[in-house]
Computed example of a mutant assay.
Amino acid sequence: MYQQPPPAIGEAQGIALATDETTCVFGEDVAFGGVFRATAGLREQYGPERVFNTPISEQGIVGMAIGMAALGHTAIGEIQFADYTFPGIDQIINEASKFRYRSGGQFNAGKMTIRTPCQAVGHGAHYHSQSVEQFFMPIPGINVVMPRSPIQAKGLLLSAVRSPDPTVVMEPKILYRSSVEQVPVDDYTIPIGQADILRKGSDITLISWGAPLYSCMQAIDLLAGNGISESMEKHIPKELRNASVELIDLQSILPWDRETIVNSVKKTGRCVIVCEAPMTGNVGAEISAEIQKQAFLHLEAPIKRIAGLDTPFPHIGELFYKPDALRVLDGMMETLKY
């Protein structure tokens, strides 16, 4: 099924291997290219001592990455699916994130990067489709990023590899095949902790990250009346079709760009936050709390959150679980009409 590698991710790892002789890439099936072909060709180019398979042990992968980073190596470990970061989460939270702090700066695991595919792909069910970024958001000492496209994937991964802090890179797996861009072949980075304003607007702020951003883009087009049927057209009030929507890709979950988000909501007075994770305790809840704290007097409507359901990810009916363009459209209209 997966014949071609995601070039941007492979290129980023290739650059890391080529520019730093201490870099190693490892994980389950990594030597063979990985289940999503994200490491295809790297073993052949850089050798089995630097690109190699590990046992099926996520705790072992993370533990080895911490040890290698502590000894000065640049360690890029792959967890085959984000759902399986949980067996290694103790190592990330209790070891990698605290290593510098507990040693008074004598040691650190800052040269550790964990890559992992995340979010739904259409047929992954409850062990291969989860959004897990919210579990890492409250952990001081690590970075967590999630690219939306190949350009961001390459730039953020190279930033993660070169960051002085341990970093978890969550790659929305459905974008491996559906997102196509002309990616610069150069060595470049995208700053961690900086949101990206994809569309500027003045009436409502729409915030998301990863794959749901594309549902948000579709919803903006629907709100403007583009590509809708006559039956749908009557459900969108004419006065809302000229609404100016500001779309923001959070891009970095930890640290996250409070300034950009708050300034946008102060300008628009309305906010909708969209993510795939279950509603309770997701990243949108933390964003909502910060907006409430810093922009309360600017709000013209309650902050609207659109998310997955508070259930395990389903075996069937994934499209009903994920926030689609119609759910986002309904959320924007409700907020604009308030």
Rank of each mutant, 00 (worst) to 15 (best):
S159L: 11
A160N: 04
Q218S: 15
I303Y: 09
F296R: 14
G281Q: 02
E181H: 10
A82K: 07
L336Y: 05
A243D: 04
A301P: 11
D249Q: 14
P6E: 01
E44F: 05
I92M: 15
V262H: 13
H73C: 15
L175E: 15
V62P: 02
V51F: 07
I66R: 00
H123T: 05
P302E: 03
L309A: 12
L309M: 13
M332L: 14
V185M: 09
P140V: 08
L71Y: 05
I66V: 15
M279G: 10
D29A: 09
R270Y: 01
H298E: 07
L254Y: 09
Q182C: 12
C271M: 12
A38F: 00
D249N: 15
P55N: 07
P278L: 08
R115P: 05
D187E: 12
R241A: 01
G47F: 07
G227I: 13
A96Q: 01
P191W: 08
L319T: 10
Y214P: 04
M170R: 04
R43Y: 00
I61P: 12
E44I: 05
R177W: 08
D249E: 13
N143F: 00
V30H: 12
V35M: 10
N263L: 10
F99I: 00
V180Y: 07
E11Y: 06
Q4V: 03
G63W: 13
L158Q: 10
F52P: 10
F52I: 10
M137V: 08
V272E: 02
N282F: 03
P302T: 07
A109M: 11
I316R: 15
L71D: 11
A70W: 08
P314V: 02
A82M: 04
F99H: 13
V62Y: 00
Q119Y: 06
M68Y: 11
E259G: 00
S215P: 13
G110L: 12
P212L: 04
P255G: 00
R305T: 08
D186N: 14
D20H: 08
P6I: 02
I89R: 10
I114N: 03
A160C: 06
D203H: 13
F135A: 06
A109P: 11
H315C: 03
Y176E: 05
A75W: 01
L223R: 15
A31M: 06
M68V: 09
H235E: 08
N94F: 02
R43S: 11
S159W: 11
F136Q: 07
K267V: 05
N226M: 04
D310C: 11
D203E: 12
W256H: 10
P255N: 04
K173F: 04
L158A: 10
G201P: 09
S178E: 06
M170T: 00
Q45D: 13
G105T: 07
M217P: 00
Y84F: 15
T280Y: 09
L329A: 08
R305C: 09
S244W: 06
G269I: 07
A18L: 07
S288Q: 14
W256P: 01
S129M: 12
S163L: 09
V262E: 05
Q59D: 09
I174G: 01
A96P: 01
E171S: 13
L71S: 14
P191M: 05
A16L: 11
